[in-house]
Design a protein around this nucleic acid. Structure first.
Lengths: 134, 134
DNA sequence: CACCATCTGCTACACCTGTCGCACTTTGGC
DNA sequence: GCCAAAGTGCGACAGGTGTAGCAGATGGTG
């Protein structure tokens, strides 16, 4: 499932709520950031429901929306898509870019290292030292 | 500079060559992957030149194209754009996603750790000072 | 020089995106 | 029950994308 920019904005608002949301809720949520009219929000919600990223249902008399697509899955697609088009399909290239080219703040870099360390198994010592194949 | 999917395909072909390329060259390069007609390639080249990502010039009698936008810069924008729309603008979130959610190969993960280590200053111990305002 | 293979300049066109507005239906309060 | 306020169904429209085709200008070859 591929989301375009405006759809991401809407989805973020939906995901940020535990309970199903109304168009009004979403509008309130994104209004400051986007200045979109209520109509625009409704259009986007409808399109998202049509494409299956949201489920649209009547709660009582009004329509409420709920994410049908998980944020995690959406992120996965987005990353995969970026890697495919911009990094030759190789995660390594993206990682390398982030580590070398990207102007990560020192803090980001630290966080990156910390996260990696943690994700690396949380127990297995990162001992392999040889820098081997390029 | 924001490139759409088809434009990325074209740009990759242009970047992959040291010398300026002709539409014919690009077509040959992407044909197998995309099955686009020569016309399509030309249209995309023109649009890219119009938006400044490529420079179009006459070499002799024919048009040749050369990247005006660096791959590195294009990647930077793409990553920034992804981070903004899908990860709340925080690199850390992307990194966290890559490290935890994404199915990185063990090798990718190692590479990630290695790159981070190396990029981290190549010697300065990661002593992470105060995290300031977060 | 004549011709054919190319190259180049336009135009096209359906579908996607970003952004609404309008008119009609419901609903809740007096 | 009536009316204002909110909700809903549709339509719209300009600009971006994906994908090409056509016709005229050009250049290399016999």
């Amino acid at each position: 499932m591929k989301l375009n920019d405006s759809e991401w904005t809407i989805m973020q608002a939906v995901w940020s709520s535990d309970a199903p949301v109304t168009a009004r809720d979403v509008h309130a949520d994104v209004e400051e950031e986007t200045a979109w009219s209520y109509s625009t929000v409704r259009t986007l919600l409808t399109r998202l429901a049509e494409k299956g990223a949201l489920s649209e249902a009547k709660s009582g008399k009004h329509l409420v929306y709920e994410a049908a697509l998980e944020r995690r899955a959406a992120r996965h697609s987005a990353v995969r898509s970026l890697v495919d088009k911009a990094f030759g399909g190789t995660f390594g290239s993206l990682v390398q870019h982030l580590a070398n080219e990207e102007r990560l703040s020192a803090r980001d870099r630290e966080e990156l290292a910390r996260l990696i360390e943690k994700a690396d198994g949380g127990g297995r010592p990162t001992k392999r030292r040889r820098r081997g194949t390029t």
